[in-house]
Structure formats: C-alpha cells, structure tokens
Amino acid sequence: MPHHEGTTQGTVRCFSPGRVGHWQGMDGHAIQIGPLIEKAEDGPLSAYYARFGRGETAALPAGYAEVWVVITGALTLRTGGRTLTAGPGDLLHVPEDSPGELTADEETELACVSVPAH
C-alpha cells in the first residue's frame, strides 16, 4: 500500500490522555472525546480517548465495531437485556450496531478503538 501525504502508516506512535491535542465536548453533556487516529489518515481504524462525567449516558448503537478499555472510573453498559459493569483495566467489545446504553457510574476515562475508521 503506498504511503499517502499526511498519513503515518508504518510509524509506531505512543498516546496518553495528557498528549491529546484537543478535546471535543458534546453539547450539554459532560462527555469529551480526544481524537488520536482519525479516518483522514487512511488507516483501517480510529482511536480516541473518551471522558464521561459521573452519571452521563451515551446511547448505542454505532455503525462500527469498538473496543473500549476502562482507564479510570466505572461504567455500566445495558445491552440486549444484559447489564455489564466495567472498571479499570476491563476491556469491552461492542459489535457494530449493538443496541444499548452506557452510564458512567463515576468520573470515567476510556481508551477506544473502532473499526472501520470514522
């Protein structure tokens, strides 16, 4: 695959929440997204950090598959008649178009990867 101008294909990178260049807020919500790897890089995935204030909720589904790793805090995911709770170090796989809703049980920070890139 050819290297495209502006992409970082073949470059190993390290990310941390403190290195996020810009956090994007969601109007009226204590939710912030810190984009890291974006669709414009022409890669197969997107990656970002997400921060949720205590009690914030977000609806599923998304039109892409995601993996979330809880860094700090805790969240509850209600999906398909099940309730899952995740805390620091837990990894959640959320398939494309999964129905449900997540709630931050406390201030929560996630590392997220989605496929395909969006």
Rank of each mutant, 00 (worst) to 15 (best):
T11E: 14
L77P: 01
M1Y: 06
D90S: 06
T72F: 00
D105V: 06
V115Y: 05
G43S: 07
L60G: 04
E96Y: 07
P116I: 13
Y64V: 06
H93C: 15
H4Y: 12
H29G: 08
T57P: 05
G18A: 02
A65F: 03
V115S: 06
W68Y: 10
E66D: 00
D27H: 15
A50L: 12
V20E: 08
G87A: 08
T83F: 08
E41V: 10
P116Y: 08
S98V: 10
S114Y: 01
T11A: 14
P44Y: 08
V113I: 15
I37S: 00
V12R: 11
I37F: 01
T72E: 02
R13H: 13
K39M: 09
S46G: 10
A111H: 13
G100Q: 03
G18E: 04
W23N: 00
D105G: 05
I33V: 10
A62F: 14
E107G: 02
C112M: 09
Y64L: 03
M1I: 08
L92D: 08
H93K: 15
E101F: 11
L60A: 03
T103R: 10
H3D: 13
G89H: 01
R51Q: 07
Q24A: 12
D42P: 03
A111C: 12
V94N: 05
E38M: 09
R54M: 02
T103P: 03
Q32D: 15
G6L: 03
V20R: 05
R82N: 11
A50D: 06
R13T: 14
V69G: 12
H3Y: 12
E38H: 07
G34T: 03
Q9I: 09
G87F: 04
G55N: 06
S16H: 10
A65S: 01
G21C: 11
P35K: 03
K39N: 09
D90V: 08
G6T: 03
A62T: 14
T11L: 13
T11Q: 15
R54T: 01
E5W: 10
G21K: 12
A86M: 11
G63D: 01
H22G: 10
M26V: 13
S16V: 05
A65N: 01
E101T: 14
P88D: 02
L75S: 00
E66M: 02
G81P: 04
H93W: 15
W68F: 10
A65I: 04
H4F: 11
D97P: 09
E41Y: 11
G43K: 06
E96A: 07
L91H: 14
G43H: 06
Y48E: 02
L91S: 15
G10T: 00
R13K: 15
H22L: 12
D42G: 08
V94W: 05
E38F: 05
A117V: 14
W23A: 01
E96N: 07
T85A: 13
G34N: 05
S114W: 00
H4W: 10
R54S: 03
